[in-house]
Amino acid sequence: MSSEVLTDAINGLAAIILLTSIVLVASKRMRSLVRTFMIQSLALGMFAAVVAYYTGADHIYIVAVLTIALKVFVIPYFLEYTIDKIHVKKEIEPLVGIPMSLLICAGLAFVGYYVSEPIIASGDAITKNCFAISLAVVLIGLFLMISRRKAMTEVIAILVIENGIFLGAISITYGMPLIVEIGVFFDVLVAALIMGIFAYKINRTFETLDTTFMRRLRD
């Protein structure tokens, strides 16, 4: 395959990752949040696979397979299981209204583009343009985290931030050493599991997933 087709594929997948982050901000139901996160992770895994094909680096293939296995199957499955168990269907009343959040996210994407411009200009990797998108995804993830109240949404938000960091790492360095990547994956998996259990416990204690109630935990 010519490198132009590969560049198109890489840029297209990066655009899908950005698109799904925006959709995450717009969606109100827990299940659609998890599904959108699955699509985003699938695009990320394919992104890694294309980069692996382009660079010929075998260890990125392993990373791609791990991404798809963990973030498309294991973690979403676990999250859906938790959602079922605590009967939470809706993210009600986000702190910022959805139209406003979307505009803020567009602004964050601009910030991502603007900040990364000098780095893009000096880089020479095929994926360098995706760095702007990865910054935007990280910022959107952070915004999602501070603008929502439910613990489950915040779990998704931290996973989105992780996706953004992963995209950034691949797009600038063609992937970190395998041992680091595996460490990160293990970290994410355990974090998601622990946070899922936390969400369950929060729900048991407060009868809600609203994290604003946790201020009462002061002694």
Binding site: L18, I22, L103
Partner: peptide, 12 residues
């Protein structure tokens, strides 16, 4: 909500 979503997409 949906309309702003499409506006954001167009802007991006």
């Amino acid at each position: 909500n949906l309309l702003t979503l499409s506006f954001t997409l167009a802007l991006l």
